[in-house]
Design a protein around this nucleic acid. Structure first.
Lengths: 201, 201
DNA sequence: ACCTGAACACCGTTCAAGT
DNA sequence: ACCTGAACACCGTTCAAGT
């Protein structure tokens, strides 16, 4: 039919998409459902966002934009690193968030800025700080990816599981302790290597 | 039309799916393309596999079924753990494999059996061996998920990247070194905790 | 019992009008 | 210039025949 131009920017589109995401999950987010929620045809959404992948990127960035907790002035780097990692782990806790953010990279990089600063302020060289951050992100993302159960979907066949080796009966508390142990190994290693790692580039 | 029953089992279906996967990537694998490659309608595939998710599960299991290298008899656990992790990291190296296996859990559990055995034979308690395995898997999966570039897709908008904090210019060699450092931190920690960790359950 | 063609209810994306 | 309806080329999944 052809209506006048629409007051609609990319932020609004991402907001609508996240609304659907939070209410009905990742599967419910489509270019059509998002545009319908905004009361327009899909075309204006394509004009502003590009395509679906760009929309998912933008959603992931927004979802991680505010994960990093504020570092306290006198907080030591180990303590802050622990809080930072815990915040990330919690934010990635939901299955759908994990599916959305999982494989992307940019959101983590963005979120790690305050941690990098804290590390630098604590005596890490610039490169060492960035590298320490990457280690912590790997540990957290790997943990979340592998350990977060997804809601036991149907999967009618093919489930023959060889007996005896699957640690499926592990309690969440146990897994929590193990994650903290992993973290401690990393922090200990970083502590010891603090001044050595930066010897590169 | 109605033809006589078909000689076709789940393994064949998974094989056809993996063939398409290897040749044209994950996006090209659909219930329709797989059944077409087998010369049947989608219905027999559904009868034997269940649904698409079950097919992807089976593909992921098969892709990781033979990752674990054979441990040598006199090999120490650190050396084998390093080889095992390297094999996993390599297998997960391709973008599409990462997309397929990424979020699943069962394939890792299966693949970790020889490593658990080697650890037990090296003085780890049963629980400690399984837990050490999990740590190594977390580290590897996190690394692969975060660091594997996917082929810079279009994403026409939303690319405003704040300046200065993105370690995108890091060389692959640098990343390799960092991964090995991460691994060393873990192995050192495990070494020290070898007899302590099992104090649980 | 087990196949096929056809359908249902969706996708992402783009085109040809319309104003 | 920028919208809409309609279309294109697909999906996953299931149904109603057919043999």
């Amino acid at each position: 039919v052809g209506r006048p131009p629409i007051t609609l920017d990319a932020e609004e589109i991402v907001g609508a998409a996240l609304h659907i995401f939070n209410e009905k999950g990742l599967d419910a987010v489509s270019m059509r459902t998002v545009s319908a929620r905004l009361g327009v045809s899909p075309v204006p959404v394509y004009r502003r966002i590009g395509n679906k992948e760009a929309l998912l990127d933008a959603m992931a960035n927004r979802l991680l934009a505010d994960v990093a907790p504020l570092p306290a002035a006198r907080e030591n780097w180990r303590h802050y690193a622990f809080r930072w990692v815990t915040a990330l782990r919690t934010r990635l806790g939901s299955t759908d968030v994990k599916l959305l953010i999982g494989e992307r990279r940019a959101p983590y990089v963005e979120a790690s800025r305050p941690l990098v600063e804290k590390l630098q302020a604590s005596g890490f060289g610039p490169d060492a700080a960035v590298q320490a951050c990457r280690l912590l992100i790997w540990a957290t993302v790997g943990f979340v990816i592998v350990e977060t159960r997804r809601g036991n979907r149907p999967s009618r066949r093919g489930g023959r599981r060889a007996p005896g080796g699957d640690p499926a009966g592990v309690s969440p508390a146990e897994t929590d302790r193990l994650f903290e142990l992993h973290l401690r190994f990393l922090l200990d290693g970083l502590e010891r290597a603090r001044l050595t790692v930066s010897r590169s580039r």
